Amino acid sequence: MKRIHVAAAVIRAADGRILIAKRPPDKHQGGLWEFPGGKVEDGEAVERALARELEEELGIRPTVVRPLIQVRHDYPDKQVLLDVWEVSAFAGEPHGAEGQPLAWVAPGRLGDYQFPAANAPIVAAARLPEQYLITPDGLTPEQLLAGVQRAIAGGTRLLQLRAPNLFDAQYRDLALDIQGLCAGKAQLMLKGPVEWLADFPAAGWHLSAAQLRQLAGRGRPLEPGRWLAASCHDAEELALAGELAVDFVTLSPLQATQSHPQARPLGWDAAAELLQHCNRPAYLLGGVGPGEIERALQIGAQGVAGIRAFWP
């Protein structure tokens, strides 16, 4: 069965809202919401197909675009490759040129709308920022609290509390304090035993590679709607993350780092190859900072994750 290549757009307004459209009831997955776009013709460049489809469907011409995510999905009756681009500027006024209903939706409310199953990673990618802050080792709870406060004030929207030097009780107390700081401003991701999940309902969970293996075959350990991430280092771990239906991953180490000098770096080419089959938002981690975001986006990553490079 030939995989159908579809170009789709996450169209973002200046205020951050995202444009979605409702599929006609007589089409495949009819009645569900989708990100506008359509089929790439044989020999057609993806960006050209995207521009053509948006002109036909919405009467707009994209002027600023970048790759966001590629998703391969197998339905019972067809296989699709969703080639998704973010459109941050366009000419014209969007309207349902084919009579389809449209809605401008805040990223955090996308979960209120029903999308085809293949669109779940796109919804996640549309909601996630380009930077993922991971807290440094060796700091006291007071230093971590102060640093997280500064990071949130500086615009950090996604952060992981990683503090392997703290005792469990210290970590849990600190997690409660930081959960309060993040409320309404940033998404907090915690690390630790999955038995703690119920104690921190506002936080997401970032699984270690060891936890990925322990949970293999047991299903997703927390309900949809709460962020679940995982640390991955190779194709096998990316596949395990997919089986667990995690929302996003970190892929590391991209380059040599002081914190993990013994780890063999992937390099940009190998990372790009792994991302081709990842099917979910991925942050590159290890020896990268804000200066590498653009390169990361161009090879299909969600962005970059960092410790010292992002710590205020």
Rank of each mutant, 00 (worst) to 15 (best):
H28I: 01
I11V: 15
H233G: 05
F35Q: 10
R280I: 04
L266A: 14
P101L: 14
Q179C: 09
Q131D: 04
P24I: 07
E98P: 02
L285K: 08
Q255K: 15
L266T: 08
V80S: 02
E47W: 03
R12S: 13
A239Y: 01
V65G: 08
A118G: 13
L266I: 14
G300Q: 06
E34T: 14
R23I: 12
I299N: 13
G99R: 15
P25Y: 06
E41V: 07
E86Y: 13
G300R: 04
A270Q: 12
R72N: 07
G99A: 13
Y283E: 06
L161W: 00
G108M: 12
D137M: 15
S88I: 08
L197D: 00
P136C: 11
I20T: 11
G37P: 01
H233W: 02
G192C: 02
P129W: 14
A103W: 03
F200K: 10
V148A: 08
V288A: 11
G38F: 10
V246Q: 05
G108W: 07
L144W: 01
D168K: 01
S252F: 09
A305F: 04
L58C: 12
I60D: 02
L251G: 04
E56A: 13
K191R: 03
I20E: 04
Q255H: 14
A106D: 14
P62S: 10
E292C: 11
A202G: 15
I152Q: 06
H206A: 02
A235W: 06
D269W: 02
I122Q: 01
A91L: 10
A106K: 04
A146F: 05
Q179F: 00
E41P: 00
Q70Y: 09
A245K: 15
G43S: 09
T250D: 03
I20V: 15
Q302M: 12
A256V: 13
P25D: 13
L284W: 05
Q214R: 15
E294W: 09
L274G: 04
G306C: 08
H95Q: 13
V6Q: 08
A120H: 10
A120D: 08
E98L: 15
P24T: 03
D168C: 01
G306S: 13
P136M: 11
K27A: 13
L81H: 10
D177H: 11
V123K: 00
T250P: 12
A21M: 14
P224D: 04
L244Q: 12
L240D: 00
L244W: 02
P94W: 07
L212P: 04
D26S: 08
A263I: 03
P224K: 15
F200T: 11
